[in-house]
Design a protein around this nucleic acid. Structure first.
Length: 273
DNA sequence: ACGAGCGCCTGTCGGC
DNA sequence: TGCCGACAGGCGCTCG
């Protein structure tokens, strides 16, 4: 579930601190425990536990949906996939179910990785490009321009929705924000990418950025308690609203399957030309 | 180049 | 009530 805005929210909270905990910058790792071996993608879980001990957090960042913690020697990378969640805890151990990894710091705090579906992954590597190097541009960066988007859309023939979900094309969009961006741009999810006009591409560019920025401003989207503390679920116009009236025209929102993913759209606002 | 199908996993929900 | 299939925020793989 966590898409770019949710991961950005984690990065900001870890970097700046919250009312519940201070910034993680400078914290020194005392030990780590892995409870599900396959949650660690690299190296193997035993080497992960050994290598991470003694390293301290020097920087906290995000690339696409990946959370990157620069440590003394390695980079610790998280991808939360469908159901991953991160907690900062101190003192008594709360009984959190589905804990896959626990990282304990010298100052008594702990970072808990919870993930009921076990799809999330951790990496500990000196070469973060081996994990995030193939990602497309950051949609909120200066490299992501209307001209770039139009050129790249027209260079492919794929359906626009699966293309936007492809992390090698653009980094960070997931199912929720893609549906919302296409709706805001008034583009049908089954359009072929090479049929978008320059004007439509620019509208889509603006929609992607504005939806992501609104998501970040709301601290992300919380659905089914998979991700906590966000407010953007109250601003969704199509995702999860099939059968409900479109807030623009009143037509009932439809749900179809595109590229194996549930896809929500307004058939009137987003005509298939 | 592209899409479909499937595997990875667990929890929830609706239908019968 | 209980069982069973469908489905869910993601993504990597194989196969046409």
């Amino acid at each position: 579930m966590p898409e770019l805005p949710e991961v950005e929210s984690f990065a900001a909270r870890f970097r700046n601190g919250t009312a519940e905990h201070p910034s993680l910058l400078g914290w020194c790792i005392q030990s780590a425990q892995i409870f599900w071996a396959r949650s660690v993608a690299q190296p193997d879980w035993k080497a992960f536990e050994q290598q991470i001990a003694g390293q301290s957090i020097q920087a906290i960042g995000r690339r696409g949906k990946y959370l990157l913690l620069q440590l003394s020697r390695d980079v610790l990378i998280f991808h939360l996939r469908m159901s991953g969640d991160l907690f900062i805890q101190q003192g008594q151990t709360n009984s959190i179910p589905h804990v896959r990894a626990k990282i304990s710091f010298n100052n008594g705090w702990r970072l808990i990785f919870r993930d009921d579906r076990k799809f999330g992954r951790l990496w500990l590597t000196q070469n973060p490009d081996s994990v995030v190097g193939a990602l497309g541009p950051e949609p909120l960066s200066d490299a992501f321009t209307p001209e770039w988007l139009h050129t790249q859309l027209n260079a492919r023939t794929r359906l626009v929705k699966p293309l936007l979900l492809d992390q090698r094309f653009i980094a960070g969009l997931g199912n929720i924000y893609t549906d919302e961006a296409l709706h805001q741009a008034r583009i049908h999810p089954l359009r072929h990418s090479n049929t978008l006009s320059p004007n439509e591409s620019e509208t889509l560019w603006l929609a992607i950025r504005s939806v992501l920025q609104a998501g970040i401003a709301a601290n992300g989207t919380s659905i089914d308690w998979v991700y906590r503390g966000g407010g953007f679920q109250n601003h969704l116009l199509v995702y999860g609203r099939s059968g409900l009236p479109c807030q623009t025209c009143g037509t009932l929102i439809e749900k179809i399957v595109v590229g194996q993913r549930g896809t929500h759209f307004c058939p009137v606002c987003q005509p298939l030309v």
